[in-house]
Design a protein around this nucleic acid. Structure first.
Lengths: 185, 185
DNA sequence: CTTACAACTGGGCGCGATGTCCGCTTATTC
DNA sequence: GAATAAGCGGACATCGCGCCCAGTTGTAAG
């Protein structure tokens, strides 16, 4: 990549972050971003085919950091704690991430596209690995990830439910699903 | 309402149902529907401000029927069974509804608009009423409804997860959350 | 039956966003 | 300092939306 191209990409990301934070993510047009970054539409579309790809780029570093902590960080987030605790810790971390970047995530994942993200695949694999002793983990995993959808998060917030209440709600969910052994001896 | 207007409304709904079923709901433009129904754009917009309102109208009868069964039908869907069973029954009924009408529901509820629906309010109130003895039911209820989002449903299907597996996954969720009493004496 | 009114009809119009295309510019390499 | 390829940017065509109004048609009163 040429030096000027890198510079422009940086300008685009900075401008987009600003705009996404100010107004809602989908009240920002490609044109707005191009204008704010001081580049032409063509330049913008060269790197980023749509708004979502810009939001993905902006989120990337944060998500990778969380992924690293999941794989190799200290428990209960990282390996070493019992599944229920790790799931709760994962929920906590995701809620913090959402809390910081809802606007970005809403820009990324509208509806079905959410599941196509590489990040979703990672969260799914992680949670899946915690479900070794429930029935049909492959069906449960998406159910457990559903409450982390950005619009659910946002909706709860608009209802006045605080981050802490969300945390304890998800904690109840994690404990309930992973600790209930009704049918086992 | 004038007789011809009623006739046209009928034509619009029939045409829309056809189109929604054929292609995906959001590959159908207002123009398509107007053309297929044999009415002008203005006529279409008179009754229905957008695609969502058409899908809502098409879903309305089915949803009302379920709502009636929730309020006054036989248990476990209606009153009389213990909460965990009623929640499971509710999940089952919703999955059946989704299974029949995913295309419509996807046309209705994209992202945040899902929560603005009158129907969502009803489901929320119903499930809320089943949560009398969990902590902070107002925070849990949206979590329990999240897996019923049409895009989650669709995603699981595209992964090859059958209706039955979805049913038992949600049943595990209901039982887990409602039957776990870790902190109680 | 006729008449007069109000509701309904339908397509034309402007708007705003999208994504592509191509002539020009600028960084890089020898 | 020239050659060359990569990058730039804005003009352009396209599409869907939603409004609007002049003509039409159902309806109800006389």
């Amino acid at each position: 990549m040429r030096a000027d191209a890198a510079r422009n990409q940086e300008k685009v990301l900075a401008a987009a972050e600003q705009l996404f934070a100010t107004r809602g993510a989908n009240d920002v047009t490609m044109d707005d971003i191009a204008k704010a970054a001081g580049v032409g539409r063509g330049t913008l579309y060269r790197r980023f085919p749509d708004r979502a790809s810009i939001a993905v780029a902006l989120l990337d570093s944060h998500e990778q950091e969380l992924q690293a902590r999941l794989l190799g960080g200290p428990p209960p987030l990282g390996p070493g704690a019992p599944p229920a605790e790790r799931l709760t810790a994962f929920y906590d971390a995701m809620l913090v991430l959402l809390d910081k970047h809802v606007h970005l995530v809403l820009g990324t994942e509208v509806g079905a596209s959410r599941f196509a993200t590489g990040a979703y695949g990672f969260w799914r694999a992680h949670v899946r690995s915690l479900l070794s002793d429930v029935d049909d983990p492959d069906a449960i995993v998406d159910v457990l990830l559903a409450p982390l959808a950005p619009d659910v998060f946002q909706h709860q917030r608009s209802l006045g439910i605080s981050l802490d209440r969300q945390r304890s709600a998800l904690s109840q969910l994690a404990t309930g699903v992973l600790s209930w052994r009704g049918g086992h001896p």
